[in-house]
Nucleic acid binder design. Structure first.
Length: 213
DNA sequence: ATATCGATTATCT
DNA sequence: GATAATCGATATG
């Protein structure tokens, strides 16, 4: 049982590239009120993220300026920006940069640490072997579903407060093997290296890349 | 292993 | 009316 402490808001008040890199190895925490005395705590380590810069980044939702949808990206740092995409999926970001300047980091993959059974239940995944675990949280839409993240419930929530039901913390784990690659699933500015992964971690999304010495 | 495709809707042009 | 920071299923090598 390792203690998890929330990150300070100043952690997020920086360039999304720096925040993205430093978020690798941190922990996303979801507390469900399920009637149990302490609730049900789901935790998962962050193993893949992407940086989305402000209005200068053609691929960012902030590119066309502030709208009702993307307002959180322009607000204070450390808050959840949740959007709905392809008529099917939610994706989670955390706002970066000081208030007034847009920027965010997209959560693309997590490694489950606790609450695996609950994640499997809400994802409708049957776990036959450890090889099935990445189906739970490998991919932005999958991890959002595993943690029951929706725009109605979570958009605009403070991710720096452990009193909330969704927050980001650190447990002393030190990230190893950080690599930077182009972002996934975008057409504009697709060549920019703004995706940060823990190389070799089986929960990282996308085609598996081979190791080379 | 890679490729293609349909689902389904909030948001923006 | 078109698009989209995706996923799961199907087809094929």
């Amino acid at each position: 049982m390792t203690a998890i402490r929330p990150l300070d808001r100043s952690f997020f008040a920086r360039d999304p590239r720096r925040v993205a890199r430093e978020l690798l190895g941190k922990v996303l925490v979801r507390l469900e009120k399920d009637g149990q005395p302490r609730g049900l705590r789901l935790t998962a380590r962050i193993v893949e993220v992407e940086a989305y810069l402000g209005e200068t980044d053609p691929a960012a939702h902030a590119a066309a300026g502030r709208t009702a949808r993307n307002a959180v990206l322009f607000g204070p740092p450390g808050y959840a920006y949740v959007y709905f995409i392809y008529g099917n999926h939610y994706c989670l970001n955390v706002s970066c940069e000081p208030e007034g300047k847009a920027g965010g980091v997209l959560f693309r993959a997590l490694e489950p640490l606790s609450g695996v059974e609950e994640m499997a239940r809400v994802r409708s995944v049957t776990l036959h072997s450890p090889a099935d675990l990445p189906k739970l949280t490998s991919g932005p839409g999958r991890l959002a579903e595993a943690l029951s993240i929706t725009r109605a419930r979570d958009n605009g929530c403070d991710l720096t407060s452990s009193k909330g039901s969704l927050w980001i913390g650190e447990d002393g784990y030190r990230a190893r093997g950080i690599r930077v690659t182009p972002r996934i699933g975008i057409s504009k500015a697709a060549e920019k290296p703004l995706r940060y992964i823990l190389a070799g971690n089986p929960f990282v999304s996308g085609p598996k890349t081979r190791f080379r010495s």
